[in-house]
Structures are given as C-alpha cells and as structure tokens.
Design a protein around this nucleic acid. Sequence first.
DNA 1: CGCTAATCTAGAACAAGTTTCAGACTTGAT
DNA 2: ATCAAGTCTGAAACTTGTTCTAGATTAGCG
Lengths: 206, 206
Amino acid sequence: MPAEASSASPASPPLTERQEARRRRILHASAQLASRGGFDAVQMREVAESSQVALGTLYRYFPSKVHLLVATMQDQLEHMHGTLRKKPPQGETAAERVAETLMRAFRALQREPHLADAMVRALTFADRSVSPEVDQVSRQTTVIILDAMGLENPTPEQLSAVRVIEHTWHSALITWLSGRASIAQVKIDIETVCRLIDLTAPTDAS
Amino acid sequence: MPAEASSASPASPPLTERQEARRRRILHASAQLASRGGFDAVQMREVAESSQVALGTLYRYFPSKVHLLVATMQDQLEHMHGTLRKKPPQGETAAERVAETLMRAFRALQREPHLADAMVRALTFADRSVSPEVDQVSRQTTVIILDAMGLENPTPEQLSAVRVIEHTWHSALITWLSGRASIAQVKIDIETVCRLIDLTAPTDAS
DNA sequence: CGCTAATCTAGAACAAGTTTCAGACTTGAT
DNA sequence: ATCAAGTCTGAAACTTGTTCTAGATTAGCG
C-alpha cells in the first residue's frame, strides 16, 4: 500500500500537534458518550466539555453532530479493519468469508450497542452536506468486503453485489438496533445476501 | 381479506368524525410540507398551524415528528399499494415482477423527492419508541413484494430474501436521496438483489 | 522579541422539537 | 338539560443543536 497518512481529510491544512490532540479528544469523548446512551446521549455541549474544548471549537472541527458521529464511525472502522486484517476469515467460498467477516463485525458492534446505534443512525440520517464523509465510510466498508472476497479486480456485477451487501448490512443493523429483528434473523439475512456473491462470480458463463 | 378498517391503530379508542378529520388534515399538511422541503421543512409548529390544530393536539395525535412522518409514510404506502394492485407487473419471472414493481414505486417517489426524503429519513432514524409503526410499514412493504411475486405461502428462505430486498430498497433509496448514487445504480442494485428470489425459489431441490 | 493572522474560549442568542398548564369546548351518560 | 370526563386551544417554558461575538491565546514570521 502507498505510504499515505491513513486518516482523514485530503488537502485540508495540516493540523498542528495540539490540534490533532484536540481532534482525538473530541472523537474519544464522542465515542464514550455514545457508548453510554447512544445517539441522544451525544450532546454537543457535553462532548465539548468532556474533551475540554469550547463549543465553537467543536463546531469548527465537526460542523454538525452528524459529521461528528460519522467521523467517529470512520475512526472505529479503521480499528475494525486493522483487527480483521490480522485474522482473515477461514471460509472456503468467498460468500462464506464475507458472511463470516460481517458477522464478526456484527459481534463487535453487539458489545457496544449504544455506540453502534449512534453511529449507524447518524450514517443513515446524514443529508447531502455529509455525503463526502459518508461516502468515505462506504468506501472503507467496500474495501473490507472485497478483502474478505479476496478480489483485486471486481466486475461491475460484483460491485453491485457488494453494494447490495452493504445496503443489507446497514439496514439489518438498524432493524436489530431498534429491536425489530433478532440476531438470528440478522445472521440469516446476511448469509442470504452473501449468496449473491457466488451468483455473480465469473466462474462458468462469462 | 377480512372486513377491517384499512388504516391504523389496533384496539385504540375509535375516533370521532371530527377527530378523524383532524388526523387527516394533519397528515395532509405533513405530506404537503414534506413535498416542499423534505424532512427539515416539516416543522411541528407549521404542521399544527397548517392543519388548524393546536401544537399540543398535534402531539397528542403523533407523539413525535418521526411518528408523524412514519404515519405519513403508511398513508402514502396505502395509496401506492392501491395503485399497484390495479396494474400488476407484467414480468415473466417473480424476480422480474418484483424488480418492476419496485422500480415503479421508485419512479413514483422520484416525482416527489422531498417527500420521499422526509419519509425515508424518518423511517431509518426511528428509534425503539416507533418500532410498532415502523414494523407496520415493513409489513405493508412485504405484502407488496409478496404480491408481486405471486406467492401465498413463502418459505422462511423466501421471507429472508424478501427482507434483504427491503433492506436494499430502503438503503438504496437513501443513497440516491443523498446524492451518493445515480438512478441507474439504484436500478442495477434492485435488479441484482431480485435475483435472490430465483435463487430461493423451491423449484428443483427441496 | 514583536507583529499579524488564525485559532480558541466563554457565553449569549437563536431555532425547532417537545412539554406543560390553565381555561374553553365536546362528548357521552344520566 | 346537566354534569363529569375527556379533549382542544393558546401560550409559555424547556431542551438541545447551531450560530454569533468579543476578547484571549497561539502560531508563524520578520
């Protein structure tokens, strides 16, 4: 991989050390509060206080609560990707490996359901003004799935399948978080959608 | 079908005529405002004024903005279902018919993108307190899809496929509404996910 | 060091969702 | 027709996201 800073903003003015530290404190406070009470518990004033930053500064770093939570998600996703890379999934087929990866991620989210709630709700509630950041999250997710599939050059068909998997992943997460689906159901649906991978694999007919 | 009032609440005290009229005025105002500026344009004070009802009354009928918008969605879904029933889709296979139905619904939403935005954002932003209503919307959607498939007794596998299709439907809609996906992409993804139907059809191996 | 521009802080102010309350109006039962 | 219970109204209050302002601090530079 190219030697590029792994984190965020492209071409924005580089942050000083103290600024980087502030940013980190804010994200930490955000995740902490979210872990307590989910989306509603992340109150901007509290985040500011908790990270020892003025409210105005918080808004300079993250122009809205949704921006903040989406950034928090990016942060967590990086962790997750790192963790997953260390122990690649074991399944025989691509579909199995993707399903395994997603269920692993799902179990990680289960451990902090409130945090998951905050991040996912922010992600789907985001409007156009947050598109770049949401897109970044989406790209990162795509990379994780393609990694699990072991693909370098996916066909357009496969990319569509991956998008559908991501859709299902987000939406299933939401139904679980709002208590409308059981974990078993989420598992089944993930496995179901992952069958699309085999279906779009350029194996015999091409 | 059983002779039951088609609309909402089970077992809640029956509404008087004037109350039914109020409810209707409120839903109308909600849809109207939503059609203008989407989620943000539906301001509770404006809805109240616009439907000639006191703010407190509005909150008695719909305990939150999200409840209101989800109810608006139920309302619109009923319309849609009626319309779709009149002209059933023409496709040969179940997958084609479902995809056609969804794309037809999608084009209907395209005509009122702001309204679609408001309803869908409310739907995915809804927390546990709105679960019953969201579930109702989900059931209604399921009925529409099963209708298009022409199925009476779906297998659990098929139900999972239908859920995945719904997930994809919602999520794809969101990415389109927030400008992160083109209409073409939505179409492709819908068609892709609909292939699951053939995959889970109990045709040969059972 | 001393200057300038940018950044940060504290706090007030504003906007919109939600709650509350006192009093007027409806409804249903007697 | 009358009373009690429930409902509706208008208005104020409260909460939390967001914006704004004036002054203090910091960073980069000569």
